[in-house]
Amino acid sequence: MAGYLFRRLVQSALILLGVSFITFVLLYVLPADPVRQIAGRSATAQTVENIRTQLGLDQPLLVQYGRYLAGLVQGDMGRSYLQKTEVSTLIAARLPASLLLMVGGIACELVIGLTLGVVAAVWRGRPLDQGLMVTSFVAVSAPQFVVGLLLLYVFAVQLGWFPIGGYGTAAHLVLPAVTLGIMGSGWYSRMMRSSMIDVLRQDYIRTARAKGLTRSRVLMRHALPNAILPIIAMIGIDIGIFMGGIVVVESVFGWPGIGQLAWQAIQRVDIPIIMGVTMVSAAAIVLGNLLADIITPLVDPRIRLR
């Protein structure tokens, strides 16, 4: 276990190194010149050159990357070109909002997805099951921004139950979290359904029924826990999808998280922020995968770590 963990940690670090290098090179070849953006239109050629030297943008690619990396391992992600603030400060200020949104989204995804999956499995082959499976396809085919705008239109504009965008209270969280969770709930209801059907076929379920336990007790105490376990680990793998989702959802609802930060930075060619958010997202994805790999054998001892 310790050896496996160590190897996986080294692997994760290497992956993050690779991500940082590729992103850096991509942003380096960027045709839009960040210095022009900072200096403004009226700047003289001399000012532009001064700023370039100041930011170290006149150095060769590898030197710049080396400097960035040296800072990164000490937790220094550089300064925003336009906001003149540490990138780590900006991200730290926005991160709680994004985390809140993600937790809300994951909760919605699980509650909706797992419930519908169990219902479908129990009524397997009946019209209810078929209806739910079609619904799950609609959920995975719905673009998140359309779902967001639809929820906004119905529940905020027409019914007035929830605020139209913004951040602060629990009411603000509901619509963005549901929007973020709906697509995943479609996948999870399908996975939960097949996992539940597999479990319901097992001998111990028949034994439990034969002992005289009620259907609902067998379902809740014997089948459900076993069917849920393999699915919980999937959340770790899905972090990447959530990272994409928050960019869209935060933009629809004006949610002040790192998705918005990244989106604004991309429009203004504020490279240190783009770099920073990409690295934070990649770290979250790698961490999610790592946790999923560690949790899977813990919940299912038949799977061994290699």
Partner: peptide, 12 residues
């Protein structure tokens, strides 16, 4: 796989 796909696409 570790790249946030949508973020990468937006950047590109």
């Amino acid at each position: 796989m570790a790249f946030p796909a949508l973020l990468l696409a937006i950047c590109l």
